[in-house]
């Protein structure tokens, strides 16, 4: 998904995940078996249960998806703490998951009981993306996953997303770097001023054409 920042990318993803009220239109979730589900009107929890995971990296990085003052283990638990019938939370599984994410994504942290707020931006994002992927989603919504990351971490996240694609996960990726979008995407949805400017084939289109669509609906030049 491409578009100038603030053209409605965030709102669109939030609408799919059930966080934004929708005025009109439909969001249809098609299962592998061909059954369809209407997502609008469902609350975020029900949508998440279908396997739709939203990993949104906001400008302040912590505002959504993570709790800054909680440690890595507790943040891993955000998605899974309801599991089981016990009144009490189970911290051992999230603790293992935190350990795995730290190892696999090379998160630089003093320990698993460090509050996420103390980590650097890149490491925070790895934790967030790592957790969303670990929940084995069927649809992965991710926005600005590499915002503010160094080149090495960025490529690590691109690899992760590509792996998810290979595993058959439908990935909706909102990005800012057009070169990357053209490399990663099968189809690119271009937004302009809150409207869909067009849906194009990522393998055939050029950077210039996408750029034109971003600035003008439909991307056609005036005479």
């Amino acid at each position: 998904m491409a578009g100038i920042s603030g053209s409605g990318q965030k709102e669109l993803l939030e609408a799919i995940a059930g966080l934004q009220p929708v005025e009109k239109g439909t969001v249809t979730y098609i299962e592998d078996s061909g059954e369809t589900d209407e997502l609008i009107g469902k609350d975020p929890l029900e949508i998440a249960k279908l396997g739709v995971a939203l990993s949104f990296v906001p400008e302040d990085r912590l505002g959504m998806g993570l709790v800054g003052n909680m440690d890595l283990t507790d943040n891993m638990m955000l998605r899974s703490f309801r599991e089981g019938n016990s009144v009490f939370t189970d911290r051992s599984a999230p603790h293992d998951l935190a350990g795995r994410v730290v190892n696999e994504l090379e998160v630089n942290t003093p320990g698993l009981s460090t509050p996420v707020r103390r980590l650097s931006g890149g490491n925070v994002q790895k934790v967030l993306v790592g957790r969303e992927i670990s929940s084995a989603p069927t649809v992965l919504l991710t926005a600005y996953a590499v915002r503010g990351l160094d080149i090495n971490s960025s490529y690590m996240i691109y690899d992760l997303i590509n792996q998810q694609k290979k595993n058959g996960v439908a990935v909706v990726y909102v990005g800012e770097d057009l070169d990357v979008l053209l490399e990663l995407c099968d189809r690119i949805l271009v937004l302009c001023g809150g409207r869909v400017s067009g849906i194009v084939d990522g393998r055939k289109i050029t950077k210039n054409e996408v750029g034109m669509m971003m600035t003008k609906l439909g991307g056609k030049q005036d005479a």
Binding site: L54, M64, V67
Partner: peptide
């Protein structure tokens, strides 16, 4: 309740 206290948006986001 700890999550709600820390960040209401995060709380809503995880349902």
């Amino acid at each position: 309740l700890t999550v709600v206290g820390e960040s209401e948006r995060t709380a809503r986001y995880v349902g």
